[in-house]
Nucleic acid binder design. Sequence first.
RNA 1: GUGGCCUUAGCUCAAUUGGCAGAGCAUCGGAUUGUGGCUCCGAAGGUUAGGGGUUCGAGACCCCUAGGCCACCCCA
Length: 425
Amino acid sequence: MARTPAAPRGTRDILPEETALWRRVESVARELSDRYAFERVETPLFERVELFARSAGETSDVVEKEMFRVAGAKGSEEERAEWALRPEPTAGIVRAYIEHGLHVQPGPLRFWLIGAMFRYDRPQAGRYRQFTQWDCEVLGDPGPMVDAELIELALRFYADCGVTGVTAHLNSIGDGACRPAFREALVEYFARVEDRLTDDSRRRLRINPLRVLDDRRLDPDLAAGAPRSIDFLCEPCRQHFDAVRSLLDGLGCRYVIDHRLVRGLDYYTRTTFEFFVAGREGQQQALGGGGRYDGLVEALGGRPTTGIGFGLGLDRTIMAMAEQGIEPPRDGALVAVVGATDDLVARLRVCTALREAGVRVRPDGSTRKLGKQLEAAAKAGARWAVIVGEETAGDSVVLRDLDAGEQQELPLAGVAASIAGSGAA
RNA sequence: GUGGCCUUAGCUCAAUUGGCAGAGCAUCGGAUUGUGGCUCCGAAGGUUAGGGGUUCGAGACCCCUAGGCCACCCCA
């Protein structure tokens, strides 16, 4: 451990150079959330461990090995082990939906949030212990249209962020009526070739056979010959899946069917989807994912209510944007206020007046030589400098165009209009 | 949780066989008795990630720890 304080493992500081891209991504997410008529919610960053165990599943990786436990300063050992930082947002949103009786509101309900998620995993580029997701959830909408709508929304998000080469992977893993048969077929199939499975897969074969398909080390021949969930769908699930596909086709949304896409969280039913970006052949190419969870509300003690949602990783979206050379949004023209005299009161008054007029102002509070102040202004990226000095009369200041190297004396009240009129903003 | 490669100034990197820890960029100041970017000059910036060992002597070699990256695992 270094003597100087360091950020905890797997976390990082996001500095101004990078926050420019963050602003763009966040504003796209906010704007789309609003345009698609989602309503903003916030839930706690930590919840009871039991909530995640009951929703994501005891055998899911996030519960089994990636839970970030929170210890209280006081209390018994048991009490201190009771909470965990949220590894995903759906459980908290569904918990809030049930707790506040939101089912009485006219549905379907559409929620969104942007927030930090936590997974105690081994860090790597694009994989952090604290990361940020944009999450959208729809509760109480059983029809296939919302499935297609969410996938279209996610693809539009990537497009609006400027990311290209994003592919939607799609699958249906059925529901309580048809999945048991699929599960049985998987067990029967893999049990015969158990000696060709990894240790992990052999264990999963007993406790959660669908996730054998998740295993990237699975022999390609075995994977190709494995039972496919869509061949086992019951009639309602098959109709739902067919409808989702034809809706996506009708929208012109491109996707590929991925028979091995079963998702790591147990609450998913029917539609599952993930978004991958081209160019990262190894890991961290998954930018986001989601699916339908028609049994989750009931499993957590609420009335039977369908649900569907996605979580998109903003860190990875930004990483993809940076790799694709996408420019961050430009700031508005910056005006530096510098002083030819040491009269700081006059300088600060000018700053305030300009800000009231809507100008973006960076003041120089030093009494350095004017040349130094102008140099600092130019280095800070200022397009203009307002020089507050004694040689000007009354309310007048000098407005200097730092790019052109030209300046003029004019009344303070005319500065904002002059900048706006130059078209250089 | 497993394996591999790494860590020298704020950043990018040098340092011969184990022999005085350096450069460029960035920062600050001066040239500039108050109008910037260029140029020139100068200053500051280091317990070489942390700890231990070998040695007359370690940035370099050995061990431990921490962190980063990569491949697994899994996902966002």
